[in-house]
Design a protein around this nucleic acid. Structure first.
Length: 805
DNA sequence: ATAGGGTTAG
């Protein structure tokens, strides 16, 4: 019979071996004494030996404590900690239980053991353990009150441990005021514990966490007065300067110790990563390796995240290799964050299958691992894989929901996003502001204004009104739904508008025909010292486009290069060309192409093409079409555009060739629809190949619409009435409560072609009244006034745009 | 029997 508990392994490989030992014990891989009392005795013996090896409370190995605790709680009929405690309800057992539970993140259990000890039996050490338990959980107030009760006790006095724990607890508070630090500093000096390095370290950390900029000096003073400085002193200083945003001060402090202590390297490397200086982080790691300082799990995690952030994938791969060589030294718990960082690295470098393989090979996974692979799949566009990971992941956090909701929105599946959001709330998961932002963006996609407004109310209720992500999402949603007024209110209410907010507001004005106002707002933004980015200029060009402000558009384009040194991208050029084309200055557009520093892209040719359509310059149009044809397939719309252009240019054979290509490649023509509000009804128009209005297709479409709306949980009592308006066109009236339901089919994104088709259909129906209303809705949205005016005369035969599917 | 710093997912 082998001895029990098994003998502890040699010192060199202690943490790893002990972890394995404890895991095997928990899994009953080792012989276990038959009687509960001898199991308990042996377990306590093991516990004591781990403690004497200083392993259990070594901050690098909290997982050993967890494993041991797990072993204690393993079978309820054996030695649960409660039974352990009942056999010895004194302060000593309570202290180790309080700290064990605190490390395990189970604060309520820790507190209850503290409470069980009668007042007269509590000693300073127990108080200290409780204070640090609260500190770990970032709960400053209860920690302070435990410290107060220690002060109030007649027989007890706080010692250096008490102060260290208290200072760390107070440091968890947000917006800590400098006077508090000075006050605590005074108390430390009065009680004469300032010479103890742990107290001074905590004091330095406290000063560094203060918002006031000048406290760094006070921290430095504490440092200079310390008789003995240890490695944690220097780490605290380095970390503190990084937190204050002063990487250079951190680096000079690091150079002051000359890398004498290993952990300071970690602090400096991660400091560089946090400040976005990934190249410096990697350089330091290289230096560390050349000095033969062994990297630990923190080093690996930081440097890998540096590689992932900066796109140093080859460097990352070599770090991966080094980690593999050292891997046997790491317990699974220590390897976990490194593996997580590896999964991130490979996801970001586009090697999602390698990332999945690493995840698969991990013996230990946590929420972070699952969330990482989830966002990896979403970023690489594998929504299906993401959805199945989401379904099967053993634990979810709020972040998982957030990633999935916004993943659906980004992937164009707004309905699924809202469905998931509703499911989330029915499962009582509290959404954070980012998740709300995702759901609101989904409403914007769908044009579900009422639903969006409800979410706005929730946001106010949850206190997320000051959040920029939520505010920007609301702003964009209102803009997409055409509620510029509401968008403006959100913009005015937001406490810290950022450049995203400005861009969104400018775009809201621009898209709804308030071109001049959009330009004014842009100038205001610049005057306020907010630097416009490339998105700002895209927005401005769009605004100019919608308002027909050609010369202004040109001026802003020049100013972008000259005053803000932003290099125009293909999208900027495409918009400028579009602007020129619509103004009939297609020749200038053609000249502009020649000045571009890159070869024309499909977007550029498309812009030229639409300009040619407006101007009837079919020669240049056909040339652009030829260029596009070479680049096909870019996206589905290109085929239709091409075929129509060739037809308009009289090149019927080429048009037919495009149509054949379209058929061969299986490009689907899906029916689209449009909407119009009349009174409290919403009319939905079916747009598409209406020459084959087989009844079942029409009804199928209606069913689809109905199912979609029911799924979204909007107006459930909506009735569909089918009315025959004309042989070539069907109109469905939604007897809705004037909600812009039809917008939920994504119709605000209705392109020019579709609008033209609707107008054409209305002409066929002879419903000029509706047509006029439709135009008034269309004007200033995606459609430019002059385009609509062209069809004011409804000259069918001349329509070069054709149908939009 | 108790303390201080450093890590990963958007």
């Amino acid at each position: 019979m082998p001895p029990w508990p098994p003998p502890l392994p040699a010192v060199a490989s202690l943490p790893y071996q002990c972890s394995v030992l404890l895991r095997n014990l928990a899994a009953r891989h080792s012989p276990v004494p038959s009687s509960p009392s001898s199991f308990l005795r042996a377990l306590r013996c093991l516990h004591a030996r781990l403690l004497s090896a200083a392993l259990l409370h070594n901050p690098s190995h909290p997982h050993l404590t967890l494993r041991l605790l797990h072993l204690y709680t393993l079978s309820p009929d054996l030695a649960t900690p409660a039974i352990l405690f009942r056999s010895d309800p004194g302060p000593i057992a309570a202290t180790s239980l309080v700290s064990a539970y605190a490390i395990a993140g189970r604060l309520p259990d820790a507190a209850s053991f503290f409470d069980y000890v009668p007042l007269h039996r509590r000693d300073t050490v127990l108080h200290n353990a409780m204070i640090s338990a609260f500190a770990r959980a970032s709960l400053a107030a209860p920690a302070v009150s435990v410290f107060r009760s220690l002060l109030g006790s007649a027989s007890l006095r706080p010692d250096d441990y008490s102060f260290t724990a208290l200072l760390s607890a107070v440091g968890q508070m947000h917006n800590l005021a400098a006077p508090h630090c000075t006050q605590l500093h005074g108390a430390v000096l009065r009680l004469g514990v300032g010479a103890v390095s742990s107290v001074s370290n905590a004091l330095i950390a406290l000063y560094m966490k203060c918002d006031a900029p000048e406290v760094a000096r006070d921290a430095r003073k504490v440092l200079d007065e310390m008789p003995v400085k240890d490695e944690l002193t220097w780490t605290t200083i380095v970390v503190g300067y990084v937190r204050k945003g002063d990487v250079h001060a951190a680096r000079s402090a690091f150079d002051e110790v000359d890398g004498e202590f290993d952990v300071v390297w970690n602090a400096m490397i991660s400091g560089y990563v946090q400040s976005g200086m990934c190249a410096e982080a990697f350089e330091l790691f290289r230096k560390m390796v050349s000095k033969r300082i062994p990297p630990d799990e923190f080093t690996f995690t930081s440097v890998l995240s540096a590689c992932a952030n900066a796109g140093f994938f080859l460097h990352g791969k070599s770090v991966h290799g080094q980690f593999i060589r050292l891997q046997p030294d790491f317990v699974p718990e220590a390897a976990l964050p490194v593996n997580n960082a590896l999964v991130t690295l490979y996801s970001k470098s586009g090697k999602i299958s390698v990332a999945a393989k690493i995840l698969d090979s991990m013996s230990l996974k946590d929420v972070v691992s699952w969330n990482t692979i989830l966002s990896g799949y979403i970023e690489s566009g594998c929504l299906d894989n993401a959805a199945s990971v989401f379904k099967e992941m053993p634990y979810k956090s709020e972040l998982s929901w957030m990633v999935m909701v916004s993943g659906y929105v980004h992937g164009g599946l707004a309905e699924d996003a809202l469905k998931l959001f509703n499911q989330m709330r029915s499962e009582d998961v509290k959404p954070c502001d980012y998740t709300y932002a995702g759901a609101i963006a989904a409403c914007g996609e769908l044009g579900a204004l009422k639903h969006g407004k409800q979410l706005h109310a929730h946001i106010v209720q949850c206190g997320f009104e000051a959040s920029n992500s939520a505010g920007n999402a609301l702003l964009t949603m209102y803009a997409r739904c055409g509620a510029v007024k509401d968008a403006r209110i959100v913009f005015l209410v937001m406490p810290n508008v950022d450049s995203v907010s400005w861009n969104a507001m400018i775009s809201a004005l621009g898209q709804h025909g308030h071109g001049r106002e959009a330009l004014e707002l842009f100038d205001q933004m610049v005057a306020r010292g907010i630097y416009p980015d490339r998105i700002s200029f895209l927005t401005i060009l769009t605004a100019c486009n919608h308002a027909g402000l050609v010369d202004e558009g040109f001026q802003y384009f020049e100013s972008m290069k000259r005053d803000f040194s932003i290099i125009p991208g293909e999208d900027h050029y495409a918009r400028l060309i579009d602007l020129l084309g619509r103004a009939g200055r297609i020749g200038e557009a053609r000249d502009l192409i020649k000045t571009m520093p890159f070869e024309p892209t499909p977007a550029i040719w498309e812009a030229i093409l639409s300009g040619c359509r407006v101007n009837g310059d079919m020669e240049l149009g056909a040339y652009a079409a030829d260029q596009l044809f070479e680049m096909i397939p870019q996206h589905d719309a290109t085929y239709i555009l091409l075929s129509n252009t060739y037809s308009a240019a009289g090149r019927w054979v080429d048009a037919a060739r495009v149509r054949k290509l379209m058929r061969d490649r299986g490009v689907k023509k899906e029916p689209g629809c449009s909407w119009i509000e009349v009174g409290n009804k919403v009319h939905v128009f079916l747009v598409g190949d209406t020459k084959h209005p087989e009844a079942h297709t029409v009804y199928k479409f209606l069913e689809m619409v109905g199912a979609k709306m029911r799924k979204l949980g909007f107006v459930p009592d909506t009735k569909f009435v089918l009315q025959d308006m004309a042989p070539h066109q069907k109109e469905y009236v939604l007897a809705a409560h004037s909600e812009k339901l039809a917008v939920s089919f994504g119709l605000l994104k209705l392109p020019l072609g579709a609008t033209v088709t609707v107008l054409k259909n209305l002409k066929i129906c002879g419903d000029c009244h509706t047509a006029m209303m439709f135009m008034s809705l269309a004007v200033g949205r995606e459609i430019v006034v002059r385009d609509v005016r062209r069809f004011h005369h409804f000259n069918d035969g001349e329509c070069s745009c054709g149908n939009y599917w």
